[in-house]
Structure formats: C-alpha cells, structure tokens
C-alpha cells in the first residue's frame, strides 16, 4: 500500500463528446410548450475544457443535464466516444453551483460516496485520502458540511466527483456562489485538477472573464429559444493574464457578440 501524493492517471483521462441536434421542450404549468434547447450540436475533443456561456434561460443547464443523462432529449442524440448516452453514469460526474454535499455525511464519507455507490469502496478506500489531499482538505476529513465555507464545500464536491475518474466532468456554474477572490482561486484550482487529469470538462458559466480564463473553446448561447450562437476558440497561452491585451480584446469581441444577440432578441 504505497499512497502517492497525486493520483496516478493516464495522460488523457477524458473522452470525446458529440451532441447532434439535441432539443428539449418542457411543458409550462399553463399547458404550453417551452423550447428550452433548440437543436444544439457540439463536438468536444477528449481532454478539452469547453465553456457554455450565456445569460440565464439560454439552455446551458438544460444541455448539461442532457449530457449528464438526467434528462432525455426530445430530438437528437448524444454520444460519449461512440457510446450513446442513455442515462446517468459515474463516468459523467456533475458538480452544481450548490455543492449539494450530503449534509448527514462527514467530508470523508461524502468523498467516499461515489465508491460506495459503485460498490468498490473496499478496493479503493485508500484513494479517499489521496483526493482529500488533492483538494487540500485532508484536515477536514471528519468535519460535517455545515462547518465548511462555500469554497471548501465546492472542493469537496469536486473531490467527490473526481474520485470516480469520470470521462467527462460537468460543472454547472460551480463557482457562481463564491465571492470574487475565492472564485479566482477556485478557477486556478479547477484548472490545476484539469491539467493533472486531462478530464474532459464542460463548464457552464455566465461570467465572460471566467470563460476566457479557463476554456479552450467558448460556446456562446442565446435564450428564447435556447440555442448555440457561436463557438469561439480561445488561443491564449496558459497561464492566462486576466488583464492582458489579447484577453481584453477577446472579452470585447464576446461582449459585442452578446450585445448583438440582445439586438436579435428585440
């Protein structure tokens, strides 16, 4: 039993993702249909970090739930590698804005719960400490979630998702509830985890700076009906400078694009 400082992983742990013409309609309480996502198509390479950027109601969370397998598309298909998505799976981890830690379990048991759910707790129990160390919370293993700050709780949620070695990690505004400073720190944290693991990450956000700072590509989405407006490559060297000229230029371009979408709306 040799525990190593960081988990040993293959070069690229992630899988590619293919979304083909996925639509999702919901029934409103008044009985009318509401088109939350209109034939979205998207290809994500293995190990890529892609942001879904847009205002609320643009269908970014809907798309994420389809990828997670928690909802089924009304039309279209989704594939991980060559496998069609038919339901939720441990290979597609999900982290929400609210960490949603199980409040009745300690930090350790929360991280462990993926192992328990998959029935591999006995073989992999030693990994729990590894992942606690990975997110820097080894000192809080026996604390209950209500003792943790927002940033700490979100780290636990990340460790809980990562311990399952997901092929794709889905992040639904994971840093949205944090204050600006914690948020920037956690962005680096997520990037560190991504670089160490090369898990494919789909990162939902409504923060343009965050999207530029983090992603390889940005999927800009617009509301009513929710659809993919444009996909932008972010060709900036990492680590990125938040106030660099090229950063700010890209920011301006995206802002203009979103303004344009607003005109299109009106």
């Amino acid at each position: 039993m040799v525990a190593e400082a960081t988990p040993t992983v293959p070069e690229v742990e992630g899988s590619s993702l293919r979304v083909r013409g996925a639509s999702k309609r919901f029934l409103t309480p008044e009985g009318t249909e509401f088109l939350a996502l209109d034939s979205a198509s998207l290809e994500v390479g293995a190990g890529e970090l892609v942001s879904l950027l847009g205002p609320s109601g643009c269908g970014k969370s809907t798309l994420l739930r389809l990828i997670a397998g928690l909802d089924e598309p009304c039309e279209g298909e989704l594939f991980v590698g060559t496998e069609p998505i038919t339901g939720p799976s441990a290979s597609r981890g999900l982290v929400f804005q609210d960490p949603n830690l199980f409040p009745w379990l300690t930090v350790r048991r929360n991280v462990e719960s993926g192992l328990v759910a998959r029935g591999v707790k006995r073989e992999k129990a030693h990994e729990v400490d590894e992942y606690l160390r990975l997110v820097g919370l080894e000192g809080f293993a026996d604390s209950y979630p209500h003792h943790l700050s927002g940033g700490m709780a979100q780290r636990v949620a990340l460790a809980r998702a990562l311990i399952n070695h997901p092929k794709i990690l889905l992040l639904d505004e994971p840093l949205g509830a944090l204050d600006a400073f914690t948020r920037m720190k956690m962005q680096d944290e997520v990037l560190r985890l991504w670089e160490a693991r090369r898990t494919t990450m789909i990162f939902v956000t409504h923060d343009i700076d965050e999207a530029i700072y983090m992603s390889d590509r940005i999927v800009v989405m617009t509301p009513r009906p929710g659809r993919i407006e444009r996909i932008i490559d972010v060709d900036l060297a990492r680590p990125r400078q938040r106030s660099g000229a090229d950063f700010l230029q890209l920011r301006g371009e995206i802002l203009e694009l979103m303004e344009f979408s607003k005109h299109a709306l009106a």
């Binding site: 997670a68 939720p88 981890g93 949603n100 719960s113 759910a117 998702a161």
Partner: peptide, 20 residues
C-alpha cells in the same frame, strides 16, 4: 439535486433509497 448528484456518482435505486 441530492438524487441527481447520487445518480451521476453511479448510484442504483438501493443507494438512492437507503443512503440518500
């Protein structure tokens, strides 16, 4: 959302009932 999280962690119905 507890149930959603558990499902994406690989939970089956037993885990969902008894552990969530």
């Amino acid at each position: 959302s507890y149930l959603d999280v558990a499902r994406t962690l690989g939970a089956g119905p037993r885990f969902l009932v008894f552990r969530v």
